[in-house]
Amino acid sequence: MSRILATASAIACTLAAFASPAQARESLGLYGTWGAFRDPLVPRCYAIAMAEPSAKRRDYQPFVAVGTWPKRSARNQVHFRLSRKMAEGTKITLRIGSQRIELTGGGGDAWPRDNGDNAAIIAAMRSAPRMTVYARGEVRGGFSNTWQLAGAASAMDAAAIGCAQLR
């Protein structure tokens, strides 16, 4: 129970940096280390999880979010906030299951390069146990962030259902 409360607290802290004012968000549920939320003012819904803890240097609190924006007809859009500011022009690679997918991004953020890669990531997240993003930091070379995926499919489904009637 204390791990669930710690996870919920950590997700809430991450959301403070990611989402609009706290009073606008509605919790749709916690699923393992993943949370699902709805923000009807935007409107949007998203599943979100923090990366595994690390004692290594961090510039940012790393998280991954899978968002849906009904008014934009955008569904299941993947966004990674990485732990470090990346070197300019760095290669960003996601390893998920047996797949390696190149991402695009800059600063501390990364995304799939196109809709096909986004769909492949979403599909792989439903069956892989974990995923790791590798990049080169602006300072001190390579780094990685890892996310456990237990609960990811349920959180993504809850977010999709939560936005089904928001237009």
Rank of each mutant, 00 (worst) to 15 (best):
I101R: 04
E102T: 09
F143K: 01
K56P: 09
P129V: 02
L94H: 11
A123V: 06
A65L: 08
R140T: 12
F37T: 04
F143N: 05
G116I: 03
R136P: 07
Y60V: 13
S127F: 04
S144V: 03
N118D: 13
M50G: 15
T68K: 01
T68N: 14
K56I: 05
E102P: 07
W111T: 10
R130W: 01
G67Q: 04
T104Y: 00
R84Y: 07
G142C: 02
A65I: 05
A119E: 07
L94N: 08
F63D: 13
I121F: 01
D59V: 01
A123F: 00
T132I: 04
P129L: 00
R58D: 09
Q77Y: 03
I92S: 04
S83R: 10
A119C: 05
T104N: 09
M50I: 06
A123P: 08
A65D: 12
A152R: 06
T90G: 11
S127G: 14
S98T: 11
R58W: 04
I122T: 05
P112S: 08
R75V: 08
M131T: 09
P43F: 00
V42C: 10
L41K: 13
A87I: 01
R81K: 10
N145V: 03
V42Q: 08
A110E: 04
L149E: 02
A36N: 07
W147V: 08
F63A: 15
T93C: 05
G97V: 01
R72Y: 06
R95L: 03
Y60G: 15
L82E: 10
L41F: 12
V139S: 15
P112D: 03
I122D: 03
P43Y: 00
Y134A: 09
G142F: 00
Y134S: 12
P43H: 00
L149I: 06
G106C: 07
G142I: 00
